[in-house]
C-alpha cells in the first residue's frame, strides 16, 4: 500500500515536456558546448551544458531509465564531437542521469540548494569517471586538474541556477 502511495505521489510530481522541447534543448546544449569555447577560449571550459540538461531532465522526469537514455545520447554525441573514443562521456552521463533520477524520486528537487549541490557533486563524479575511463580503460593520459574540476563544478551549479527555472517554463500541465 505504501509503495502504491509513493508511486502515486511520484506520478503526480512528474514533469512532462513536449517532445520537440527535449530535442531542441539537447541540440542547443550540444551546439552551445561546441560554440562557446570559440568565444570564451578553449582553456576556460568551466561549463558542461549537456550534463546540466541531463541532470535537469532526469530530475524532472524522475525516471532513471529516461535519465540514463538522455544522458547516454548526449554523452555519445559529445564523444563524437571530440574525436576521442565513443563512450567516455556516454558512460559518465548515463551514470549521472541514473543517479539524478534516483535522487529525484526521494527528495524535493525544486529546492535551489539541492539543485546546486546535485550539480556540483555530479560534475565531480563525471570528472572522476572520465579520469578512470581514460586511464584504466583506454590507457591514455588525462590532464586532470582539481582546480579545473572545481571550477567546472561551480560553473555547472551556477548554470543550473539559470537554466533550470528557464526550462521549468516549458513544462506541460496535466
Amino acid at each position: 500500500m505504501a509503495v502504491k502511495m509513493a508511486n502515486s505521489r511520484r506520478d503526480l510530481e512528474i514533469h512532462r515536456y513536449p517532445v520537440p522541447v527535449y530535442l531542441l534543448v539537447m541540440l542547443i546544449a550540444l551546439v552551445l558546448q561546441a560554440l562557446l569555447p570559440r568565444v570564451l577560449g578553449p582553456r576556460h571550459i568551466w561549463y558542461d551544458f549537456p550534463l546540466v540538461i541531463t541532470i535537469y531532465f532526469a530530475l524532472a522526469r524522475r525516471s532513471p531509465i529516461g535519465g540514463m537514455v538522455i544522458g547516454g545520447v548526449m554523452g555519445i554525441f559529445q564523444d563524437a564531437l571530440t574525436g576521442h573514443a565513443i563512450g567516455v562521456f556516454g558512460i559518465a552521463k548515463t551514470i549521472s542521469g541514473y543517479l539524478a533520477a534516483s535522487v529525484g524520486v526521494r527528495i524535493d528537487v525544486q529546492n535551489t540548494i539541492i539543485r546546486v549541490v546535485l550539480n556540483f557533486s555530479l560534475t565531480v563524479l563525471c570528472s572522476a569517471i572520465d579520469l578512470v575511463i581514460h586511464r584504466v580503460l583506454l590507457g591514455m593520459e588525462y590532464g586532470w586538474n582539481w582546480r579545473n574540476t572545481l571550477f567546472q563544478a561551480v560553473g555547472n551549479s551556477v548554470l543550473a541556477l539559470f537554466v533550470f527555472p528557464l526550462l521549468d517554463r516549458f513544462q506541460t500541465r496535466d
Binding site: 555519445i76 573514443a85 556516454g90 575511463i133 580503460l137
Partner: peptide, 28 residues
Amino acid sequence: LVLLALLLAQIIGLAMQVRRTPAGQMTF
C-alpha cells in the same frame, strides 16, 4: 538492470576502439 545493460554496451563499444600497442599496452 537497464543501467548495467547501458554501461555494458558502452564499455564493449569502448573496448572495440582500443588496440594493443607493440609495447603491450592498451591504448585508444
